[in-house]
Amino acid sequence: MPDQTVLIVDDEYAIRDMLRMALEIAEFRCIEAENIQQAHTLVVDERPDIVLLDWMLPGGSGLELLRRLKRNDTTADLPVIMLTAKTAEDNVIQGLDVGADDYITKPFAPRELIARIKALLRRAGGGEKNERIQVADLVLDGESRRIFMADEPVDMGPTEFNLLQFFMSHPERAYTRGQLLDHVWGANVYVEERTVDVHIRRLRKALQTPEHDYSDLIQTVRGTGYRFSARGIGVR
């Protein structure tokens, strides 16, 4: 994915330098800002393909810049990944509610960040719907819209498939029922939030067979909603 531009917004030079070196090795072009004023100028002048935005910045928070970008029609679709030391679920949800596409908490491995950048750019380019995603023996084939567990096909309804595809494309992140409705059903479709719970139950049931049980991949996050996670349940 050469020649795509990443705007790094962080007030710590050491972090920007580390990110720039890792991203340039991965063939990205990097531009840098240390505050929201510089960042907004670079967004307008350079039109980056994606923004890595630190939460805490001098002269205003990254959340303030995020709101500004999402309010403007010319930058509303610009992908943004929040870089944050804030690990509380409500802080993460606040960033996602404002319009962040993803987040990663410090400290993080550059390889994980680069993988997320590439995945987000694929989604922005429309490639997510056709991708093939695998977690252990669970395979989702976006092109054929089929699910397999240990090479055995899984019977699953279209809404459950769409939910699983969204979850597998956005692992380890908690989403509210409202956010899932927007992403999976569509922001302009009126569906009650409790509908999400019904389809989650159906999805978990579909992920259970006599030989395999991946229902625990869909985790309930108390007070928030749901997340897809392969951590701590013996799945790699």
Rank of each mutant, 00 (worst) to 15 (best):
A100G: 04
A115W: 07
E128Q: 08
D101N: 09
G125Q: 13
G126M: 07
G125R: 09
R123S: 15
I114R: 01
G125C: 12
E131M: 10
P107F: 03
P107G: 06
I114L: 02
E128P: 10
I114M: 00
A119H: 15
R111S: 12
F108R: 02
R122G: 10
I114S: 01
K118I: 05
R132S: 14
P107N: 06
L120M: 15
A124C: 08
L120S: 05
L120T: 07
G125E: 07
T105N: 08
E112H: 12
G125W: 05
F108N: 03
D101E: 12
E131V: 11
R122S: 10
E128S: 15
A119K: 07
P110R: 01
K106Q: 05
A100P: 03
A119I: 04
I117W: 00
K118H: 10
I104R: 01
I114G: 01
G127S: 09
I114K: 01
L121F: 05
K118D: 08
E128K: 15
K118A: 14
R111C: 13
K106V: 08
I117A: 00
F108L: 03
I117D: 00
Y103R: 12
A115D: 12
A119R: 13
D101M: 08
E112Q: 11
D102Y: 11
R122K: 13
F108I: 03
D102R: 06
R116Q: 06
E131G: 15
I117K: 00
G125H: 15
I104L: 06
P110I: 01
A115G: 10
A119P: 09
G126V: 05
T105I: 06
L120Q: 12
A109L: 14
E112C: 11
K129E: 12
K129W: 12
I114T: 02
N130L: 11
